[in-house]
């Protein structure tokens, strides 16, 4: 589904590299965690998938499409196939929880009926039906992240890309978010997630890629956090 073919990313000075000769693939319905120290290249790797960053060498494929050959005008269409979740939530601060989720559907050109039906379902899935009309500033960190997840899944994407989704959360909120991601994966959506959290990895017991200095140094099918 996702295929990295010998991808390297060099910084402007031409010597230091964020990614070095990264090759791996992700199968449909997999749940892949990427672990590693800060600066190991985890976030750069995710940015390659959503075409926010370009590789210096190599190619990234989404199914059979070379992601970095997509013309700029078509990028919004491509991004709608991917749900994204970030450490800092990235919610629209002047929209309510409901509107944040609805915005992703509106941008996707969905009808009003679909929005009226799917947004409450997504909110129910992350257990936030009662906070639908609150603004992000009125929500806790865990609630914000659940809104972000609801927004990521509402368009039924093929894949969820989550960059440190539990990085800013307390242990209980972390547990809830991981459970939701697991549930989404069980429903058939591929999930790629980066994390620092050893507890999360051990709890999941799924495939783990370990990165160090821009390289993938381990690939365990049912991994533990080894660093």
């Amino acid at each position: 589904m996702i295929y990295f073919d010998n991808v390297s990313k060099l910084y402007n000075d031409g010597r230091s590299a964020a990614l070095q000769e990264v090759t791996f693939q992700v199968a449909p319905k997999e749940f892949v965690s990427i672990v590693g120290h800060s600066g190991a290249g985890k976030t750069t790797l995710l940015k390659m998938i959503i075409a926010e960053d370009k590789p210096s060498h190599g190619q990234v494929f989404f199914e059979s499409i070379d992601v970095h050959q997509i013309p700029r005008t078509k990028l919004p269409h491509y991004r709608r196939k991917i749900g994204t979740v970030f450490q800092d939530f990235k919610l629209l601060s002047n929209k309510t929880a409901y509107e944040n989720i609805a915005f992703a559907m509106e941008a996707n050109g969905r009808t009003d009926d679909e929005i009226a039906e799917n947004v409450p379902q997504a909110l129910a899935l992350v257990d936030l039906s009662d906070k639908a009309w609150n603004f992000p500033s009125e929500l806790s960190g865990g609630e914000k992240q659940r809104v972000a997840i609801a927004r990521a899944i509402v368009n039924q994407p093929d894949i969820i890309v989550a960059d440190e989704p539990t990085g800013n959360l307390d242990p209980i909120a972390t547990y809830e978010v991981v459970q939701i991601l697991k549930k989404i994966n069980d429903l058939g959506t591929t999930v790629i997630m980066t994390t620092h959290n050893k507890g999360v990895i051990d709890e999941l017991g799924r495939r783990v890629l370990t990165m160090d200095e821009g390289r993938i140094v381990r690939d365990d099918s049912s991994g533990k956090y080894v660093l």
Binding site: I50, P76, R79, T84, K90, L92, A107
Partner: peptide, 16 residues
Amino acid sequence: REEISIMRLVGASNMF
């Protein structure tokens, strides 16, 4: 600008 970058990430077209 932060809002704009978020809108791009969720796949909103430039005109939108």
